[in-house]
Computed example of a mutant assay.
Amino acid sequence: MGESIAAVVVRAAELTARGLPRKAIDLLRPALVAHPLHAEAWCRLAAAHLDVGEPDPALDAAKRALVLDGDHAWAQRLAALALSELGRHAEAAVAARECVRRKPGDWRCRVVLAEVLAAAPETRVEAVEVAREAAHLAPTEARAFQVLGDAALRVRDWGTAEWAYRSALALDPADEDVHANLATVRRKRGASGRPSGDALSRAHELVWPLFSRVAAMLVAGGLLLLLAGMPKPTPWIGWFSGALVLAVCVVVGRVALRRAVWALPRYRPKVAVVAVLFGLSTLVLVGWTVALFLGATTMQPLVIAWLCALAGGSVVVLGGGR
């Protein structure tokens, strides 16, 4: 008898995979009348009902599986999807979180949680992070990246959505839905011009250590110039000042070609403040250097440049790169 119901479950799975979930339902229902304690069969039935857009019987079947011995995480996933389709988002989220709790290493649980969270506006940002975890757990599963793209699309994170959809297509090039969504994202991203959250975070991680080096150069170099130029600077000091400006330009030039770096000050206020202070300090140094070669003997511009560098360095130290 056990082999009989097992064979029915296998045939139902094959029918569902071939896009015939209604035939799978017709096959499973009479088998479950004879074998009502077979949890996997109830899960297969719930999945088939979801495939044909029938969340109510899918939820009933998933609940039957939950009270039997079997894969409760699978039953929780199915229950969460059915509840979500019924508009019961809070209950769906509870079921999906329980699924993740039962099997934290199962990427499918996180995929379902991301889908459920993405359905409610107040949890869409969390959905992106959960989907990102699913993609990390299953780097060879196109579905994980597709769900990440869908979640990112809902929060208008075009860069993350495009990357996720491209990753999904690299694994499954024939998915027409992903192709369509990727085309939508590219249109939207072209209209907005905003880098993705991932790109901004990577740019921040790149820029902040650079700011630390620039702060050390401008503060220490400015202090040395102050000491060397007292009481009256000479044109020879201009060569050292010019060397300092050149060194700063070389360090900054290493990351200046990255698009996200230029966009970063618009979205990270601390970066904007530090960039303005360091930029002002460098410009004043350039002007003072030129003035020295033309015969000027004032120290005031150097003091201003040094104070700007000190203020920017303080923001870098106190900000801690967060």
Rank of each mutant, 00 (worst) to 15 (best):
E3H: 15
S4V: 10
V10N: 08
E14C: 00
E14N: 04
L28K: 08
L32C: 12
H35D: 06
P36Q: 06
L37E: 14
H38F: 08
L45D: 02
D56Q: 07
P57G: 11
A62P: 02
H72G: 14
A75G: 14
A75P: 03
Q76E: 14
R77M: 11
A79I: 00
A82W: 05
G87Q: 04
A90V: 14
A93V: 08
V94M: 04
V94N: 08
C99E: 04
D106Y: 10
W107R: 07
C109R: 03
V112F: 08
A118P: 04
V130F: 01
R132V: 01
A142L: 00
A144R: 09
F145R: 12
A151N: 12
R156H: 15
D157H: 03
W163S: 06
Y165S: 07
A168N: 02
P173H: 04
P173R: 06
N181E: 06
N181Y: 06
L182R: 02
V185P: 07
V185E: 05
G190Y: 11
A191P: 03
S192K: 02
E205V: 01
L206Q: 11
V207P: 06
P209D: 10
L218G: 04
L223Q: 14
L225A: 07
M230F: 15
W236Y: 08
G238K: 09
G238T: 11
L244I: 09
V245E: 09
A247N: 10
V250W: 14
V255C: 00
V255P: 00
A260E: 15
P265C: 11
R266E: 12
V271T: 14
V273K: 15
F278V: 07
G279N: 11
G279P: 13
W288T: 12
T289M: 14
L307E: 13
V315Y: 12
V315I: 15
G319A: 09
